[in-house]
Design a protein around this nucleic acid. Structure first.
Length: 574
RNA sequence: CGGGGUGUAGCGCAGCCUGGUUAGCGCACCAGUUUUGGGAACUGGGGGUCGUUGGUUCAAAUCCAAUCACCCCGACCA
């Protein structure tokens, strides 16, 4: 490829709305353009990177028996209604009507569609196991798209789905996919970590699931990592322990106390001279259960925080969020003095964190302006409640085995789940087993965000001069930079080397523009091609050209004729 | 969804407060000359319904209103 024919614009300046390095560089180097909030156009260079990434994915999935299919991007509402997700996924799913007034959506994920495909073909256990995958565009109407391709609304995803006759078979495929994912990310040049995760809206709670994370400060997920145990988990589900609480063991009766305008845990703690960890923080959450509005009262230690993702998991209520003033009013609650005492558990479920000792006394609001109680004891005073891990982990916590932990941030580039029979059951996709009995196959589901993975590569490998592509993803392996554009000897040498590379099957681009040397250097660095060949002064003087590695900056000089063998050697592991 | 901010050339911005020539700067783009080892210099040029709509005014990029778009922050007082 000749640079002059590439139809690419690079920029010296960073677009004002790009927050993170990968977004800035992908834009500056001419790989992506924004077309709207969370919507991006890909340039020819970006398409080459995407092709390289998807080839790696296809190869590795084929190795473990994956079969590529393509499901329609718009899906009819009927399918989603069969699994009840038409309403459950809420505003995340962009829904619309066609000219005949039929409801459709742009697929945010494809469990229903793939099960529909599956059930039209599968009749017998003899057809299993099977693993179907596709690489196509998904649309999720995210609350807040950001960070360029990291959280776009329209994005390319590889999603795979496997079907099994029994748990054992599912486990085996899950393991195969786990290994395939590790190889895929390794080949993309990513340092990746498998992390225990929460299935969220996609799977039944308790299902086995791992996320693959690239550690980066710009990551949107918080991870809890224990190096000693080689254990890592998403903070949405990581259970850890506090070791600093002294409980107020007491059998004294509950005592009503006047607290006036004191509302925060901090104020109450000071006023009554009680430790914050001996107060109970109570929040009211609102969500949906079986399409009906449902309320949840969540309690934790006063200086802890409620983790909403964990609350959703343990309560079975989806789309949980903090209730607003009008919700509080409607239910007869008062802001600032919330508490579980005397709450009708038929109306509001009560979920209490495990760190709240059920025999210790706590200070808590009593839903009456100006009053709290002392010595509220869970076992005695709150007859109907559930206890579960619903707090946010802190860096000062220890693992369940008592070892030190670290909190760090990660970019989720892949996610694998065991879905169980949730979708096959919902969509009545059964096959006959050996005994001629109909059974619902177990499913696994495996996703990779293609654009996000590519962004993560940029995020992880870029330096102050621009992108540094690994050979496996780079649009071109070699960039030839003939300096002094008007010098015939140099131009000829460049052209000759360019043709020679092509003859030898080396992927190459030549910067044939009539621009100053600095421009060519800066652009080559910015665009991140791994191998640079510079033809300039040294060629005029000594008939030598110069090699420079983008990644290490290491330079070498060799005679022109020696370059092809050198490059072949350098690229042979690719 | 709530709060804040920004919309002026492809990109980055000034001008607006205090209304008044032909709306400006840098980068990018086009032509020419000179340059050529880390984003060259000079000369000449093209490109704008100042987000949109409405209002105030002799006069609006500038003041007012509405609206749209984009960005950032936010659920910890429950």
């Amino acid at each position: 490829m000749k640079y002059s024919q590439l139809f690419i614009q690079t920029f010296k300046e960073t677009p004002s709305d790009a927050q993170i390095i990968s977004h800035q560089l992908l834009h500056r180097a001419g790989f992506i353009q924004k077309s709207g909030a969370g919507l991006y156009n890909y340039s020819p260079l970006m398409m080459m990177v995407i092709q390289n990434a998807t080839s790696i994915i296809r190869e590795e999935l084929s190795k473990v028996g994956g079969l590529e299919i393509s499901l329609s991007m718009a899906t009819p509402s009927e399918l989603w209604k069969e699994s009840n997700r038409w309403d459950e996924l809420g505003a995340l799913m962009i829904q619309f009507k066609d000219r005949s007034n039929r409801d459709l959506c742009l697929s945010p994920t494809n469990e229903e569609a793939v099960v529909d495909y599956f059930r039209k073909v599968a009749k017998s256990y003899k057809q299993l196991p099977v693993c179907l995958f596709q690489i196509n565009t998904k649309f999720r109407d995210e609350i807040r798209p950001r960070f360029g391709l990291m959280r776009a609304r329209e994005f390319s995803m590889k999603d795979a789905y496997s079907f099994h006759i029994d748990r054992d078979c599912l486990d085996k495929t899950y393991e195969l996919l786990y290994q395939a994912y590790s190889r895929i990310f390794e080949r993309m040049g990513l340092a990746c970590m498998a992390v225990e995760a929460d299935g969220g809206a996609m799977a039944d709670s308790g299902a086995k699931t791992h996320e693959f994370h690239v550690l980066a400060d710009s990551g949107e997920d918080e991870l809890v990592v224990c190096k000693q145990e080689a254990w890592a988990a998403n903070s949405e589900m990581a259970q850890t322990k506090r070791v600093d609480i002294v409980y107020n063991k007491s059998t004294d009766a509950m005592e009503l106390i006047e607290t006036g305008q004191h509302h925060t845990i901090q104020d109450i703690s000071k006023l009554l001279n009680v430790k914050e960890s001996n107060c109970l923080k109570t929040v009211l959450l609102k969500g949906k259960k079986e399409n009906e509005t449902s309320y949840l009262m969540a309690c934790c230690i006063g200086d802890d925080e409620i983790n909403i993702a964990k609350c959703m998991k343990h309560s079975g209520i989806s789309q949980l969020e903090f209730a607003d003033e009008s919700d509080l009013k409607e239910l007869g609650f008062v802001r600032g003095v919330l508490g579980p005492v005397g709450v009708d558990s038929d109306q509001v479920n009560i979920l209490v964190d495990l760190h709240v000792d059920n025999e210790a006394g706590f200070v808590v609001g009593v839903n009456k302006e100006g009053f709290h109680v002392k010595n509220m004891i869970l076992n005695r005073d709150i007859p109907v409640c559930t206890q579960a891990d619903i707090r946010v982990s802190r860096a000062t916590d220890v693992s369940m085995n008592g070892n030190d932990i670290e909190l760090c941030r990660g970019i989720e580039v892949g996610h694998i789940f065991q879905l169980g029979d949730k979708y096959t059951k919902a969509l009545k996709a059964s096959v006959l087993d050996k005994n001629g009995k109909a059974i619902f196959p177990l499913m696994g589901c495996y996703g990779i965000g293609v654009g996000r993975a590519v962004s993560a590569v940029v995020e992880q490998l870029a330096d102050e001069n621009g992108i540094v592509w690994p050979e496996s993803l780079s649009p071109f392996q070699v960039v030839i930079l003939p300096l002094k554009s008007k010098d015939d000897d140099i131009a000829k040498a460049g052209q000759a080397l360019y043709e020679e590379c092509q003859k030898n099957g080396i992927s190459v681009i030549i910067d044939d523009r009539m621009v100053s040397p600095g421009f060519k250097f800066k652009d080559a660095d910015l665009m991140g091609f791994p191998h640079q060949i510079i033809i300039g002064e040294t060629f005029k003087n000594k008939e030598e050209v110069e090699y420079r590695s983008r990644q290490s900056g290491k330079k070498e000089s060799l005679r022109l004729a020696e370059w092809i063998p050198f490059l072949k050697e350098a690229l042979k592991d690719k």
